[in-house]
Computed example of a mutant assay.
Amino acid sequence: MRKKRIMIIGPSRSGKTTLANRLNEYEGPLRRTQDVIYGKKTIDIPSSYIENAGMYKHIISISQDASHVLLLVDSSKQHQVYSPGFAKSFQCPVIGVITKMDLMLENEALSLKELKATGVGEPYYRISALKGIGMEALKEYLFSTE
């Protein structure tokens, strides 16, 4: 049986790679790429995959190797990223993560609205991967069943 990883999906510069590095306990430099990156515990999906609906089938296919899917919403940039009901495409649990919470607290309600429209149910995690805010609660949830 293949090892299940945590799939991370989000718009460009939403903190996907920083979050993946934290979950993988990697302290090296950030690597930006247009390729899917399989980490020790994560699958980092390039933002171009969600910006093109034609790539959705590839995301869904890759998710077969995922224990969980994290859908990221960047609180510092408010624009609709995901198609309505997108979260319903996955067979594994989908968790809503609001990133960069330390930058734009006033956008929390808009971020929650986007996650709900995407089809993600509660609980929602509010984090700043760069500063470590909310990371312990997210890790506890993700790794409690290992």
Rank of each mutant, 00 (worst) to 15 (best):
I6R: 01
M7N: 02
M7A: 05
M7R: 05
G10H: 02
S14T: 02
K16Y: 00
L19T: 00
L19E: 00
L19G: 00
A20S: 06
A20V: 00
N21E: 08
L23R: 04
L23E: 02
E25I: 07
E25G: 03
E25N: 12
Y26T: 09
Y26K: 11
E27W: 02
G28W: 00
G28Q: 00
P29L: 12
P29D: 13
L30M: 08
R31V: 13
R31N: 09
R32N: 11
T33Q: 04
D35V: 10
D35E: 15
Y38D: 01
G39D: 02
K40G: 03
K41I: 08
K41Q: 11
K41G: 04
T42Y: 00
T42I: 00
T42H: 01
I45L: 08
P46T: 01
S48A: 09
S48F: 07
I50L: 10
N52K: 11
N52F: 11
N52M: 08
N52I: 07
A53G: 04
A53D: 13
K57Q: 12
I60V: 14
S61Y: 14
S61R: 15
I62F: 06
S63V: 02
S63G: 05
S63N: 01
A66V: 01
A66R: 03
H68C: 07
H68R: 08
L71P: 06
L72W: 10
V73C: 13
D74I: 05
S76D: 10
Q78R: 14
Q80W: 14
S83K: 15
S83A: 15
P84T: 09
G85H: 10
F86D: 08
F86Y: 14
F90R: 08
F90H: 04
F90N: 07
Q91H: 13
Q91W: 11
Q91K: 14
C92K: 06
C92Y: 09
P93S: 06
G96Q: 05
G96D: 07
I98F: 11
K100M: 02
M101K: 12
L103F: 10
L105F: 12
E106H: 10
N107S: 04
N107T: 00
E108R: 15
E108W: 10
E108Y: 09
A109K: 11
L110Q: 14
L110Y: 12
L112N: 10
K113S: 14
L115H: 07
K116C: 07
A117I: 08
T118E: 04
T118G: 04
V120R: 11
V120I: 14
V120C: 12
G121P: 06
E122D: 11
Y124Q: 12
R126V: 09
I127R: 05
I127H: 04
S128I: 01
S128V: 04
S128A: 07
A129N: 05
A129I: 07
A129T: 03
L130D: 07
K131Q: 12
G132P: 01
G132K: 03
G132W: 05
I133R: 12
I133Q: 13
G134A: 09
G134M: 08
M135S: 02
M135E: 04
E136N: 15
K139N: 06
E140Y: 12
Y141M: 10
L142R: 02
F143E: 05
F143C: 08
S144G: 05
S144Q: 11
